[in-house]
Design a protein around this nucleic acid. Sequence first.
DNA 1: ATGGTCGGTGGCCGA
Length: 283
Amino acid sequence: MRIATWNVNSVRARAERIAAWLERSDIDVAAVQETKCRDDQFPTELFTELGYEVAHHGLSQWNGVAVLSRVGITDVQIGFPGQPGWGDPAAPEARALGATCGGVRVWSLYIPNGREIDDPHYAYKLRWLEALRDYAAGCLATDPAAQMALCGDFNIAPQDDDVWDMAEFEGRTHVTKPERDAFRAVVDAGFAEVVRPFAPGPGVYTYWDYKQLSFPKRKGMRIDFVLASPALAARVSGALIDREERKGKGASDHAPVIVELDRTAQETSDAADAAGATAPPQV
DNA sequence: ATGGTCGGTGGCCGA
């Protein structure tokens, strides 16, 4: 099974490009962020025609998260218990959607950007990550064997080589110690980042600003991740950051990230049965 | 070429 995470920066602006990529890349489940539309504006039919079921949560032109799956979608959950709100009055934004697809609990997450260190949005970002950690840790406490993926745009570069030049980030968000500590707390709760071992840096990124020719100058950031529970991490056989998809006119400013999973022991057994390998002898 | 962005929106904001 192949799971992807991708901040698409408007699903309507590049719907055809997204659909073509899903099909070409043989993606079974996609966690999508920044759809930038309400539910009634989502181009659902384009994806259902390709065999994907769609679960989307969008409240306005901001944020918006979705899970697309061609291996089933059940138990769709909008947001998570304890998810902090924003605004006045504070209300949860469209930044988290969970769904069970092919036996895996997949979360599409769009962590707040933080804007500037002295901006209230930065404190909101840290609160949001702490709540995510608490929720995810609780899931594992309830079911240590859970197959769960926290996929999304975390808006954090956890290591110095996850940005092109640390000097450029002096006094800026995405690289501060509190943000990195908050990211690490999720990892320490039992959710390993499974892409990096297959796509080591330096110089390997998932995001490049549209401005100032960042992409051709290779000035990027690694901020999109797949964090897997222990049972899911054990199935990861490969991963890829598809830098090619960042190229050309009409690209998102984020590249899609793919994780390849081995079949579970049960799936392998079922497949063997179907093939007759362990079928009982016919009498 | 010594600069250089998008998307959604509605008369700027967010990234």
